[in-house]
Amino acid sequence: MTKIPVYLDINGHHHELQLEPRVTLLDALRDRLGLTGTKKGCDHGQCGACTVHVDGERVLACLTLAAQAQGRTVTTIEGLAREGEMHPVQAAFLEQDAFQCGYCTPGQIMSAVACIREGHAGSDEEIREYMAGNLCRCGAYPHIVAAVRQAAQEVAS
């Protein structure tokens, strides 16, 4: 199929790509733009490793066509830190040891940032439910909850 021009706004930078329409946002980020922080765990919307923000909301890049993201703003894990300063959620993940192998971590962090922003980090129980879309095979969940709780308090104060 012929490629189409796709304009993407990612982490504040504009990119013009020529893509087959079937290219997902995830594969565009990873294979075309070198933004490999976003991970592929299942490619079917079942693990959350590819979580990014589109227009500020957490979504799965593996089930989003790159072409669909044109005209929207995309934020990935690489765009979260500002001028080398970690986002409070990143700092909390580091401090709470909220990861082990680190593979699900970018997705967890993008999900956590949105979870707090949505107002779904009000209690540990709520955090657990609203972070349930991000699998962690290493079993870092208790520390992930602690990190989200800590970051939510910091963001609120």
Binding site: G45, V59, L60, A114, E118, A132, G133
Partner: peptide, 9 residues
């Protein structure tokens, strides 16, 4: 239903 990410999509 599903996950927060899927519900946003």
């Amino acid at each position: 239903a599903a996950s927060a990410q899927i519900r946003n999509m």
